[in-house]
């Protein structure tokens, strides 16, 4: 095992240094960086995907379109761009549980879910989900019923997957906005179910 040198510079110091060097060469404008950061902190996140799911739960025609042509149906709600070029939606059912991973990097559908959470980028997830998915899901707190088949999707090219969770019982009276508030990022990757309100 190669040890990290003990006088290793922190990533915070090295990031600051790289920014200075690129700004001095006029290759990067810090205000453009600020805009980029705030976009992914405020505007692009799992609420986008939750709106897609809630629409599918309340509009059968939209749901059918979403499952047939995810890219177009998602674009119709205004979501597209980098890391969402070709979207495929996977429908959770009583019989099948879908879960999404990227073993080669941490590819993730940015336009609908934002940037990936730390558990998705963690080696334990990337390594384990394609080998022992039922055990890995259990470690994360999700027990998939024995009779339910597991399908794992390794995003090894530019297809990006969104999981359409099952609508929880007891939500018949809720409109799309209230339903969207129930939908979690974790359920849209397939490592959790949507809980009833």
């Amino acid at each position: 095992m190669t040890d990290a040198p003990s006088d290793r510079l922190s990533p915070a110091l090295r990031t600051e240094a790289l920014e200075q060097l690129l700004v001095e060469r006029e290759l990067v404008d810090p205000t453009v960086m600020d805009t980029f950061i705030s976009t992914y902190e405020r505007d692009v996140g799992p609420l986008n995907g939750a709106r897609v799911v809630a629409r599918a739960w309340t509009d059968a025609e939209y749901r059918a379109w979403l499952l047939r042509d995810g890219t177009a149906a998602i674009k119709d709600l205004g979501y597209g761009g980098p890391q969402g070029e070709h979207m495929v939606v996977l429908e959770q059912t009583e019989d099948v549980h879908h879960v999404v991973v990227c073993t080669l990097c941490s590819c993730y559908p940015w336009p609908v879910l934002g940037l990936p959470p730390s558990w998705y980028k963690d080696p334990a997830y990337r390594a384990g989900m394609v080998r022992t998915p039922r055990r890995t899901l259990r470690e994360m707190g999700l027990e998939v019923p024995e009779g339910r088949e597991i399908q794992v999707w390794d995003s090894s090219a530019e297809v990006r997957y969104l999981v359409l969770p099952r609508r929880p019982a007891g939500t018949d009276g809720l409109d799309a906005e209230a339903l969207a508030a129930l939908v979690t990022r974790d359920a849209m990757v397939g490592v959790a179910e949507v809980a009833a309100p």
Partner: peptide
């Protein structure tokens, strides 16, 4: 050999400021 997968928690996109700067850079 990586140990168990993490239990998901709520977290901001960039838990530390340098992570956002690194992302944008």
């Amino acid at each position: 050999g990586w140990g168990p997968a993490q239990v998901p928690t709520d977290e901001p996109p960039f838990p530390e400021p340098w992570e956002g700067r690194s992302f944008a850079l």
